[in-house]
Design a binder for these strands. Structure first.
Length: 525
RNA sequence: GGGGAGUUAGCUCAGUUGGUUAGAGCAGAGGACUCAUAAUCCUUGGGUCGCGGGUUCAAGUCCCGCACUCCCUACCA
């Protein structure tokens, strides 16, 4: 048996200091959808997500709470993991924590490789440092306020003058190699507008990067100098390697899955993923990931979400209000992926009712009801297909390739838009053929129309499993499609009657179906 | 200050290399049907395509200027 193609996708790892909000959910869900799509399409898939647990802030917060840093991150990480597991249904294969023992090995190994490449040197760093932001600021980026203390202008956090011995990475050396790489791999970053910003930044020149700290010790120790711990970037980005077995580059997982096919991240960290990370990997002699997709941020009715405004939405609150599948669908259908999006209650309800309940749910309900009542409760035998039948079936058939192409570049909205266009055509077909009339005049023709409609629904249900796994599974159940598969949750979805491999295997006439129950309830306020 | 994106129907947005009466979805109006989750189908959109100039036989679609909005980046203080 030939080896299956593989697919390795990651999310950014989250700094678990607050509570998860709908923006976190957006990233997890979109990565989950991508992973499920690839599994259903026959790819042996590995999906990595997790938390970034080191740093001075954690150490200080822990002290303030009378905990060890590990105790604090255990507590905070549990909250994020619970959202993945119990609220959003995220199908990750590993939830990595930068405090995992194997991650220490991986981070120290890539560090050693960069040292061997001559790209790490010891120097001194000085500047205005904000503990809360974990960032240095130029003097011009700070101001002295009335209380006599100095603050970051941008973030309003207090800064202190710090002089510190630090290891540096020779990022400057990689300006040209990176530009060459971008030119040869124009799809490395997406969407294009974000990638262009990155390229322009690199063209302006790169400074070497401070990559260690000695003022605190909650981090991965620098090999050969236990006075230092790695600063965020080497430690955090390396999780993508750790997740598939690094530093054991001979391991089965590493051989299969590295280089990663997709890093899915937010626009705030595009530079780290499109510049630092490839440079580190070039230095360490490791293959570069194939693509970084940069998603936008979500706004509440056009306003930035913020605690002080009090408009932050918790994923659990939305899921309770609208249901998980409606939330997943809304997030992927409503916004062009990569752009910022603005949500309102009315917009979510609109998608839920119009797209899910009316266009899809009602089409399924009306056609399956007729089958249950008029075809002895089994999938009917179709007769000769008319042009109208063939036209709607052909439009439905085209959705597989259209979806593949759209998913390949993470244009989820495009796949869904086209799918719902075809559903609109299917509703028109159904009304046009009027099987409830045919029931009185031509039962054979009625059975054909009902069969064709059921086939359309089957194909659509297959393709939207990644987005609305629960509802799509119910839809396939209702059509009597053999149970099996898990809507992309695991690699068991690679094949079987609910995988994309079965897209062209039509419903078997005579298959019994149950009396249908509505799958997509309307949202009533 | 420099660079970039944008400003199209009530709302959210599409509009290829400039070319017949500027499009979709949602919302609204009218009609149809009754299989269905008060759903679905059909019909219905005279909107200064931000403003003002220009190029052209022809511009939402190219050029210049202006006004807002947003993003990236710098610098002064």
């Amino acid at each position: 048996m030939a080896d299956k193609p593989t697919y390795y996708i990651t999310t950014a790892i989250t700094y678990p200091n607050g509570v998860p909000h709908i923006g976190h959910a957006y990233e997890y869900i979109s990565a989950d959808v991508m992973a499920r799509f690839k599994r259903l399409d026959g790819y042996e898939t590995f999906f990595l997500t997790g938390t970034d647990e080191h740093g001075q802030k954690v150490q200080q917060n822990a002290e303030a709470q009378g905990l060890t840093p590990k105790q604090l991150v255990d507590k905070n990480t549990a909250v994020f993991k619970q959202v993945d597991d119990e609220v959003l249904g995220i199908s990750y294969d590993r939830f990595i924590r930068t405090t995992d023992p194997d991650h220490y090995q991986a981070s120290q190994d890539i560090w050693r490789r960069m040292v061997e490449a001559g790209d790490i040197y010891l120097d001194k760093y000085s500047g205005w440092y904000s503990v809360r932001d974990e960032a240095y600021y130029a003097e011009s980026e700070t101001e002295v306020r009335q209380d006599g203390e100095r603050y970051s202008i941008e973030t309003g956090t207090e800064v202190h003058w710090v002089e510190e011995e630090s290891y540096f990475f020779r990022l400057s050396k990689y300006q040209q190699p990176l530009l060459d790489f971008y030119r040869k791999n124009p799809d490395f970053g997406g969407p294009r507008s974000r990638f262009n910003e990155v390229i322009r930044f690199v063209e302006d020149g790169l400074n070497d990067l401070s990559i260690s700290r000695s003022t605190f010790d909650w981090g991965v120790p620098v090999p050969g100098n236990p006075e230092h711990v790695m600063y965020v970037w080497v430690d955090a980005l390396t999780n993508y390697l750790t997740g598939v077995g690094f530093p054991d580059t001979d391991s089965a997982a590493f051989g299969k899955f590295w280089p990663a096919d997709l890093h899915l991240i937010g626009k705030d960290i595009s530079r780290f993923h499109c510049i630092f990370w490839p440079a580190f990997l070039m230095s360490a002699g490791i293959e570069l990931p194939k693509r970084v997709i940069i998603h936008g941020f979500l706004h509440n009715a056009g306003e930035k979400m913020s605690k002080s405004v009090g408009n932050v939405v918790a994923p659990g609150a939305w899921v309770d209000t609208y249901g998980l599948d409606a939330v997943r669908f809304f997030l992927l259908r409503e916004f062009p992926y990569g752009q910022d999006g603005s949500y309102t209650h009315d917009a979510v309800v609109g998608r839920k009712n119009s797209d899910l309940a009316n266009n899809l749910g009602n089409l399924a309900q009306r056609s399956l009801s007729m089958i249950a009542k008029n075809c002895a409760g089994v999938i009917p035998e179709p007769g000769q297909l008319t042009e109208a039948d063939q036209a709607i079936l052909e439009q439905t058939d085209s959705l597989l390739e259209i979806s593949r192409e759209a998913y390949q570049v993470q244009e989820f909205h495009r796949a869904l838009e086209r799918t719902w266009y075809v559903l609109g055509e299917a509703n028109a077909y159904f009304a046009d053929q009027a099987p409830w009339q045919l029931k009185k005049t031509d039962e054979a023709r009625m059975r054909t129309v009902l069969y064709v409609t059921a086939e359309v629904i089957r194909k659509v249900a297959l393709l939207i499993q990644p987005v609305i796994p629960g509802s799509a599974s119910k839809l396939l159940d209702a059509l009597g499609v053999e149970i099996g598969g898990d809507a992309g949750r695991t690699n068991a979805s690679n094949d079987g009657p609910r995988s994309f491999a079965a897209f062209g295997e039509p419903l078997a006439p005579g298959t019994p179906i149950d009396k249908p129950q509505p799958i997509f309830p309307r949202h009533e306020d």
